[in-house]
Amino acid sequence: MSLKGFMKDAYKGKAREKRRLKTRDGDFVLGFEDFVQKVGDRPTWSEVEELAPSDEKLLFGLIKTGPRAKKHDQIVWGFLSSLVAERIPEPLMLPAMDFAGLELRKGSIVLDESRGAHHVGEKMSGGRIVVKGEAGDYLGQEMAGGGIVAGSCDDYAFRKMRGGWGVVLGQAGNYLGLGNRGGRIVAKERVGSRTGWLMKDGRICVGGDAGSYLGLMMKGGRILVKGRAGTRAGWRMRGGAIYARGYGPEVGAGKVGGKIYRRRGP
């Protein structure tokens, strides 16, 4: 018998239309470790979304387990946390981890007992993130929408922000709003040095004092400080406006453009 005859006999003329193996469809993952192995070296939102399990419970299980020592794994976990937040109606409660809410588009995340989680809410374009405790560096970096509330934060918070809003209930570190092109930031207590450095647009409101080099080389936007600014506020600034109750030495040194105002009253 020819091989074709053998196959015809085996299938009795019922050879079904072709169906191919579905690979990498993400419907079956054994755990976080297995999942990260399926993701490429440079994880992207679309890749993680494609591979992620459609089952919400399974997806939720992934962000509850798995070591996240490597940056690659942290980024994957961050994408997954945003995916879960998008898919569930209620706020997602998570222990604070680096890259939580990465590229979040909608939904809410509450990070509990944070003691310096970095890159929280990075590149988010919608939704809400509440950090109960201290956020680390790069809080809301490159965010374009949505809002973040944090107890306090370290350096480079809201760097290159394009939209959305951020509220820091306590103190903020250095370089707050570095290179901002939009968005609104409120820090209710003291902020570190170089707040609004290279800022092009947007608003920063500081409830306490500001460190040195406030609005350093800024080109646009507004900075309002309810307390005093440190030395060299508005150094080499080209545009925008700074308001503060008082300034340290060498205010406006090398200023090319923009305005520096002294606030009066309470």
Binding site: L3, K4, M7, Y11, K14, A15, K18, R19, R20
Partner: peptide, 19 residues
């Protein structure tokens, strides 16, 4: 083997038989 591989097996067998 009984379901999804039907077409695949037929293609291979036709090639082996020179069709």
């Amino acid at each position: 083997t009984l379901n999804e591989r039907g077409d695949m097996n037929m293609i291979f067998s036709r090639a082996i038989d020179g069709e």
